[in-house]
């Protein structure tokens, strides 16, 4: 199918910084309908092509009606925090059917259980966003978008690339057609679970990376964190049924490098400020939204009897939630028995 010859609009749900970046990229290839809950933002986008100080492409039209997104667009990109995902799907489901294609850009996990201290989760109680879409709506053709895509850099029109993953080749192909441009490359993958987990799990490594910066450490320490962090993520992913393949690509190592180096990353900033002595509640209040990495940390730790060792997650959890001293934590990690290098490649 050639999208250029159709009158379809691309749908984007969520007008946060990443949602807007995606809407602007899509707008280079066609009309875009962007959903926001905020009427002021809608008017500003429609009248001035501005959202706060961000420039919005002329092809983007904003709406506060979920129904019109589902009616006017068959290809929809939900780009919202994982905390709001279920609520969104419940509201959207009545308008969706099997003809829709949903490619989400949300790097988080969901569990219907209330997250608290010492909670124990079963594998069946933790959902990726694509699993949630399949569970809560009549949509079958789902995909996800993951990779080193820091919104601020995308909005400055810097070159970047992403991965679209789906079991359906047509979802990948249509997503590529919709997003590709001279400054944005789109790779495809059939490893949906792997790509989703790569995008989700890297968040807590980014918190640790922020801590290293906060402590004034340099690149040796960070390189150690990234490589061994990735090994840990691969072990977790394998235990959850994914393969290592996605982790060696853009959505894995690519995203990990970007978020571990960027103080634009929310997760990174959480770590940085923790190392500077602030406590979590303060930090969350300053950021204005939850960093996904904090939630991921709780979920990964509560799944621990699924046969993986996750020393980094374990110690980070203690630091973030139990006021465990960071220096001691790093000491413990350094003493953790060193395995064979790159042992995850068989």
């Amino acid at each position: 199918m050639d999208l250029k010859n159709t009158s379809h609009k691309f749908g984007v749900i969520g007008a946060g910084s990443f949602g807007i970046a995606i809407a602007n990229l899509l707008a280079e290839n066609g009309k875009v309908l962007l959903y926001t809950r905020n009427e002021e933002q809608r008017d500003s986008i429609n009248q001035k092509h501005l959202s706060r100080d961000l420039k919005i492409h002329e092809n983007v039209e904003a709406t506060t009606e979920l129904k019109s997104i589902a009616e006017e667009c068959f290809l929809i990109f939900p780009i919202i925090p994982s905390d709001n995902f279920v609520e969104l799907l419940d509201a959207l489901a009545p308008y969706l059917n099997a003809s829709h294609i949903l490619i989400h850009g949300t790097k988080g996990l969901y569990t219907p259980k209330k997250l608290g201290k010492d909670i124990q989760l079963k594998k069946q109680e933790v959902f990726t966003m694509s699993e949630l879409i399949k569970l809560k709506t009549g949509v079958v053709r789902v995909g996800c978008l993951a990779g080193p895509n820091l919104a601020s850099e995308l909005s400055e029109l810097q070159p970047a690339a992403t991965v679209i993953a789906s079991s359906f080749n047509e979802v990948i192909e249509i997503g590529q057609q919709a997003l590709r441009s001279t400054r944005f490359q789109v790779y495809g993958s059939n490893e949906l679970l792997g790509v989703e987990l790569a995008g989700v799990l890297k968040n807590y490594v980014a918190i640790a990376s922020g801590m290293l910066t906060g402590l004034g450490y340099g690149e040796n320490a960070r390189a150690l964190l990234i490589t061994r962090g990735m090994a840990e993520l691969i072990h977790i992913a394998k235990a959850l049924g994914a393969s290592e393949r996605a982790f060696l690509g853009l959505a894995g190592i690519g995203d990990l490098i970007a978020t571990c180096h960027s103080n634009k990353s929310r997760n990174f900033r959480v770590g940085l400020q923790l190392a500077q002595g602030k406590n979590l509640d303060q930090i969350i209040e300053d950021l204005g939204e939850v960093a996904e990495g904090v939630k991921t940390l709780i979920i990964i730790r509560s799944l621990q009897n699924y046969g993986y060792k996750a020393p980094l997650a374990e110690i980070l959890y203690k630091i973030v939630f139990e006021n465990f001293p960071i220096h001691k934590g790093i000491g413990l990690l350094m003493r953790f028995s060193a395995e064979k290098d790159a042992e995850y490649i068989v």
Binding site: M1, A98, S99, G138, E170
Partner: peptide, 10 residues
């Protein structure tokens, strides 16, 4: 469910 939807692209 209208089953035709499963085969639709646009």
């Amino acid at each position: 469910v209208q089953i035709k939807n499963y085969f639709m692209l646009g």
